[in-house]
Simulated assay, not measured.
Amino acid sequence: MDKRRKKSLESFTNKNNIFFSNYDLLDTAFTHPTFVFENKGRSFESNQRLEFLGDAVLGMVVAQYLYEAFKQEPEGTLTKMRAAVVCESTLAKIARKLEIGQFLCLGKGEELTGGRDRNSSLADAFEALIGALYLDQGIQVVKKFLEDKLLNELDKYELGNYGDYKTMVQEIAQKICGENVTYHIISESGPDHNKQFQAGISLKNELLAVGLGSSKKEAEQAAAKKAYDSLNSKNKKYNGD
Rank of each mutant, 00 (worst) to 15 (best):
A219V: 02
D136S: 12
Q174V: 09
E179T: 10
L104R: 13
T34P: 07
A56C: 01
N232R: 04
R42E: 14
K166L: 03
Q140V: 04
G59F: 10
I185F: 09
L78T: 05
E75V: 06
D24G: 01
S214R: 04
A69E: 15
N161V: 10
L66C: 12
K149G: 00
R42A: 07
A219Y: 11
M81D: 07
D136E: 14
Q140I: 02
E38V: 05
S230K: 04
Q64Y: 01
F197K: 09
L26N: 08
G76Y: 01
R116D: 13
I130E: 07
G178P: 08
I172K: 08
N22I: 01
L91K: 05
D164V: 13
K6E: 15
Y157E: 07
R96E: 15
G163H: 01
M168S: 14
L135R: 04
G160Y: 10
L25M: 02
N194G: 13
K175H: 08
K166V: 14
I94V: 12
G213P: 11
K236F: 02
Q72Y: 00
N180E: 14
E147T: 03
D55C: 01
E127H: 14
E188Y: 13
T90R: 13
D24A: 03
K195V: 08
G101A: 08
G240E: 06
D192Q: 07
P33M: 09
S120D: 15
E220G: 00
V36F: 11
Y67H: 12
T167I: 09
A173E: 00
A224M: 00
F145P: 13
D117T: 13
E38R: 05
K204A: 15
E68V: 11
Q198K: 09
L112P: 10
A63H: 09
L66Q: 08
E110Q: 03
A173T: 11
T182D: 11
L135H: 03
E51K: 06
D117R: 09
S214E: 05
N119W: 02
I172C: 05
R82K: 07
T31R: 13
L154P: 12
M1C: 09
L208T: 02
F52R: 06
I185T: 15
Q72V: 11
R42I: 12
E73G: 00
Q196G: 06
S189A: 15
G54W: 07
T77I: 04
N235V: 06
V181T: 13
A92R: 12
Y183W: 14
Y165T: 05
A95T: 11
A69Q: 10
M1A: 05
L203I: 00
V85N: 01
G59L: 10
Q48A: 00
D124L: 05
E188N: 15
S202H: 05
I201K: 07
L98Q: 13
S11R: 07
E206G: 00
F35Q: 10
R116V: 15
Q198W: 07
Q196K: 13
G211W: 04
V142I: 12
S46Y: 07
D136K: 04
N47M: 13
K71P: 03
S120C: 06
L53K: 15
N14I: 04
L231K: 14
L112W: 09
L151C: 06
I18W: 10
E99Y: 06
R4V: 13
L159C: 14
N194P: 05
G115S: 04
R4N: 10
A95F: 09
R5C: 03
E220D: 02
D229S: 11
E51W: 04
F19K: 06
T13P: 07
K80H: 10
